[in-house]
């Protein structure tokens, strides 16, 4: 595929919830196209029958016991919130959807 054509920057911005200035977009478009063009060299690799590798050192069943820790001093986890009220985090109005 032609990366230049397949990159829909506006759509990526929506998916990543990231606003870019027009200048940023102008710069980023060609850069992404070039990087994607570069990574497409992977097309030459034959991966028939090769399992994908999701972990550097694969393990299984890393599970913990269902034990609850006592609740002390929870306030400290809210302290970095830019805005809070009544122990809740305040966000600008969210339209249900």
């Amino acid at each position: 595929m032609n990366p230049e054509q397949s990159i829909d920057l506006d759509r990526l911005c929506v998916l990543a919830r990231l606003s870019l200035t027009p200048e940023e977009k102008e710069k980023l478009g060609p850069q992404l196209a070039r990087i994607i063009g570069y990574v497409e060299q992977l097309n030459e690799v034959d991966v028939d029958g090769i399992e994908p590798m999701a972990h550097a050192i694969p393990m299984e069943n890393v599970l913990r016991k269902d034990e609850a820790t006592p609740l002390v001093d929870r306030e400290k986890y809210l302290k970095n919130a830019p805005a809070s009220r009544a122990s809740q985090v305040v966000v600008p109005p969210v339209i249900e959807g």
Partner: peptide, 20 residues
Amino acid sequence: DGIRYGHRSSEATDGIDLYY
């Protein structure tokens, strides 16, 4: 995302705009 911590834009008009 500027909700629980981190930079929060002062320009955001609503909760979704806040992300962008």
